[in-house]
Design a protein around this nucleic acid. Structure first.
Length: 574
RNA sequence: CGGGGCGUGGCGCAGUCUGGUAGCGCACCAGCUUCGGGAGCUGGGAGUCGGCCGUUCGAAUCGGCUCGCCCCGACCA
């Protein structure tokens, strides 16, 4: 491609709204432009990157025997009502009506559509297993889009759905996808990890997220340096320290704690550490209120608590409800004398003695409260988030915490959707059975953004060659000089012939402008043809990621570029 | 949805308090000089000051309403 015939509006200044590197460099590099909040247009350069990511995804999916389909973005409400998700999905589901007042939504995911597609056609175990996938637009009406492509409302996703006859088959399909995903992200040049994850709105039992390590990531990853256990913070377990307080149980005492609502205020006033206070939080679920008791220095993990309780909805109760249940304003709830709600304790509370709890009375707390003697709980389990200092539940080593970007998510759905929507097949014995389904997503646009978060410097992007918009940037320093121009044209033609994705900067710009644009858009290889070398028959070859500039004879340039390209590909292909 | 902020040429901003000629830098166009890390000079094109209603002789500026965007929080893959 010749730059004079290309459309690459680069910006010298940093756009005000860009907070993270990927957002900033994609805007500045003329790759994306915002149309509305969380909605972006892709310009030629940006779309080339997307196409390259898609190409890798496609190859690896096809290699596992998955078949590409193309499903509608607009989906009828009836389908979503069958699975109950029309009501449960929440406001992320953008709903609207057509002229006939029929209800529709923009697809945020496609389980319903795919299940509907196969339920009438896929009737025999002989046709299984089957894996269908597609790559196209999803729309989720995010409450707060941010960080450019990282959390957009409209985004490109690869989603795949597997259908198997039984659990064993599902396990195989799941492992296939897990392997394909590992291969895909490796080929995209990303450092990543797969972690155990929660299933959220999609549902199912087993799930892994593929996380790209990056400071800008919105997810927290917990990892054991010893055994390699890794999990999303939503899922991470840890080993509770066994407590067997040898202290004598002290006398229960109600003390005055005027206007002290927070853990810090109360424990500071009484003079104990926050871990000695038991927070009692009133939550609302679809089957009534519950009270969660956790140590004062920890946070509730709502996903874990919901799972333990077997509820699908769990949210903090409104202030009014808290007052009605505990008989005191928020901040003074406690287990002693609390009536009418189930009491659920975190397992780290077991064995603790002489703790501080709310007294269910404004401005009062109890000290020396003891489980068994002063109160009891209905249920105990793991309902808190792991925090730094906690130990691996497998090997007891302190866990490490870091940040990541979720670029892929695989789920074992089981029969949740097939049963809800009546998608059955006949097995070998002629018995009707629901499909065992899996679903597998990759955020294509997010993957491109994640690559930038991981591969950039202060000047711009440093694309892994496999997803770079171009492989080689041909930079004649002065287009006005005929000798430079002729060499550049010749190299350009030959590189094209040798299958190199080359961008020729034939603009009549100053060299500095060209160097800066080349660095900004992050093309991995750069060949400079300039006055310094041309008389000696030399040009320069440089890797975007390094500092070294290598002088090579112009007659060897093609071979050098091709082998440099191959070397870079070798790093990411396995 | 709660809190905060911002809408002035393609981008980044000043001007708004204290009403009266709409300005700067970058980008864009033309010419000349320059030419290896975002050149200089000269000339030029481009703005319903987010929108509507109001106050006023007169509104980017004051008032009301409204739309959009950004940040923090709640929420979420």
């Amino acid at each position: 491609m010749r730059l004079t015939r290309y459309y690459m509006p680069t910006l010298r200044e940093k756009p005000a709204e860009a907070e993270i590197f990927s957002h900033q460099f994609m805007l500045r590099g003329g790759m994306i432009r915002k149309l509305a909040s969380g909605i972006y247009s892709f310009l030629p350069l940006g779309y080339r990157v997307i196409r390259k990511v898609e190409g890798i995804v496609r190859e690896e999916m096809n290699a596992k025997g998955a078949l590409e389909v193309f499903l509608p973005v607009v989906q009828p409400a009836e389908l979503w009502r069958e699975t109950g998700r029309w009501d449960r999905f929440g406001k992320e589901l953008l709903r609207f009506k057509d002229r006939g007042e029929r209800e529709f939504c923009l697809g945020p995911t496609h389980e319903e559509v795919i299940t509907d597609l196969v339920r009438n056609e896929l009737r025999s175990y002989r046709q299984l297993p089957l894996n269908l996938y597609q790559i196209h637009i999803k729309f989720r009406d995010e409450i707060r889009p941010r960080f450019g492509l990282m959390r957009a409302r409209e985004f490109i996703m690869k989603d795949a759905y597997s259908f198997d006859a039984d659990e064993e088959g599902l396990n195989r399909s799941y492992q296939d996808m897990y392997d394909a995903y590992s291969q895909i992200f490796r080929r995209c040049g990303l450092r990543f990890t797969a972690v155990e994850a929660e299933t959220g709105a999609i549902g199912g039992d087993v799930s892994h997220e593929f996380m790209v390590w990056a400071e800008a990531g919105e997810d927290v990853i917990v990892r054991c340096p010893q055994c390699g256990y890794t999990a999303n913070i939503e899922k991470a377990t840890f080993r509770p320290l066994l407590k067997d307080d040898q202290d004598q149980e002290g006398p229960l005492e109600k003390i005055h704690t005027p206007r002290m609502r927070t853990v810090e205020e109360v424990t500071g006033f009484i003079g104990v550490s926050p871990s000695r206070l038991v927070k009692t939080l009133i939550y609302q679920t679809e089957v009534g209120f519950v009270a969660l008791m956790i140590p004062g220095d920890r946070e509730v993990n709502e996903a874990k608590a919901a799972r333990l309780l077997g509820v699908s909805e769990l949210r903090l109760a409104a202030f009014d409800d808290v007052e009605e249940i505990s008989g005191a304003p928020v901040g003074f709830a406690g287990p002693i004398g609390l009536k009418g709600v189930r009491l659920v304790a975190d397992r780290t509370l077991e064995g603790m003695k002489n703790v501080v709890v709310g007294a269910n009375e404004e401005d009062y707390h109890y000290v020396n409260a003891n489980p068994g003697r002063d109160f009891s709980w209905d249920m105990v389990g793991d309902i808190v988030k792991a925090k730094p200092g906690d130990l691996c539940s497998l090997c007891g080593v302190p866990l490490e915490f870091s940040r990541g970007i979720e670029v892929g998510h695989v789920f074992k759905l089981g029969t949740k959707y097939s049963e809800a929507m009546g998608a059955f097949f006949l097995d070998r014995d002629g018995v009707e059975r629901p499909f065992f389904m899996g679903c597998y997503g990759i955020g294509v646009t997010r993957t491109a953004a994640a690559a930038i978060e991981q591969h950039h410097d202060e000047r711009g992007i440093i694309w892994p060659i496999s997803i770079a918009p171009f492989e080689c940037y041909l930079l004649p320093t002065n287009w006005g000089r005929s000798d430079i121009k002729e060499v550049a044209e010749a190299l350009y033609r030959e590189l094209l012939e040798r299958g190199v994705d080359v961008l020729l900067d034939d603009r009549e710009e100053r060299a500095g402008v060209k160097f800066n644009d080349a660095d900004l858009i992050g093309v991995p290889l750069r060949v400079t043809i300039g006055e310094r070398g041309i008389r000696k028959g030399m040009c320069e070859l440089k890797l975007r990621r390094g500092k070294d500039v290598r002088e090579v004879p112009i007659r060897d340039a093609i071979g050098e570029v091709v082998s440099a390209k191959e070397a870079l590909f070798k790093e990411v292909e396995c």
